[in-house]
Simulated assay, not measured.
Amino acid sequence: MKQILVVDDSAVIRKVARRILEGLELSTSEAADGRKALDACAAAMPDAILLDWNMPEMDGFEFLRELRRMPGGRTPKVVFCTTENEAGHIAAAIDAGADEYIMKPFDQQIVRSKLEEIGFI
């Protein structure tokens, strides 16, 4: 079963994402910020990451740059999931190594579609 890490400072968003992803038969784990997510990746690199942009400690953009420098860190598919909708933010995320971008709020159809587009499911 493929493993996906949900990184978001909102427990509600993590819970919603977990339900959606488990409904797609994906194994999920969670992290409340970028630092905790890096620790999780160092312990066991996931196959994909659903990543919030705005978080305390380390935001999603900083996390993504650090992830891509880690051994094996270029492997996971990364989907930003955020309220940031400016073209500059989207371009910066893709340039930093994100594979796709989802706007909040999201639902199962949107998540499934984006994961299919990047060849994850």
Rank of each mutant, 00 (worst) to 15 (best):
I49M: 08
V6D: 02
L38G: 00
V7L: 02
L64K: 04
G34F: 02
A17W: 03
P56F: 09
V16R: 10
A42P: 00
Y101V: 07
A96Y: 09
R68G: 02
E100C: 10
V111L: 14
R74E: 13
F63L: 07
M55G: 05
M1T: 14
M103K: 08
R68V: 09
D9T: 06
M45N: 12
R18K: 14
D52F: 10
M45K: 10
L24H: 06
I13Y: 00
T83C: 11
A32H: 02
A42M: 09
E84N: 10
R112F: 12
M70W: 00
G73P: 12
A98Q: 08
V111F: 09
E30T: 10
D9Q: 06
V79F: 08
A32V: 04
F61S: 07
S113D: 12
E30P: 00
R18L: 10
E30C: 13
V6C: 09
M45Y: 04
E116M: 13
D95Q: 14
D52W: 10
P46I: 11
S10R: 08
A31S: 02
G23A: 07
V12Y: 06
G72T: 11
T75M: 09
D47M: 11
I102D: 03
A32D: 07
G34N: 03
G72S: 13
E57H: 01
Q3D: 12
G73E: 05
L24F: 11
P76Y: 00
I13Q: 12
G97V: 14
A11Y: 07
D99F: 13
R74C: 08
M103N: 11
F106A: 11
M55K: 05
M1H: 11
Q3N: 14
G60A: 06
F120H: 09
E84A: 14
V78G: 06
E66G: 01
T75R: 13
D8S: 09
I121M: 12
F63R: 00
P56M: 06
V78Q: 06
L51R: 01
C41L: 04
A17H: 03
F63V: 00
N85P: 00
E117T: 14
A17M: 15
V78Y: 04
G97D: 05
L64T: 09
D39L: 09
N85H: 10
A40T: 00
A93M: 05
H89R: 06
R112W: 12
A98G: 14
M58T: 01
A98C: 12
M58P: 01
R35Y: 06
Q3M: 14
Q109A: 15
L67Q: 01
R18T: 15
E22G: 03
Q3R: 15
E57S: 01
V79Y: 05
R14E: 07
D99M: 12
D8G: 08
C81R: 01
D52S: 05
F61N: 02
V79P: 01
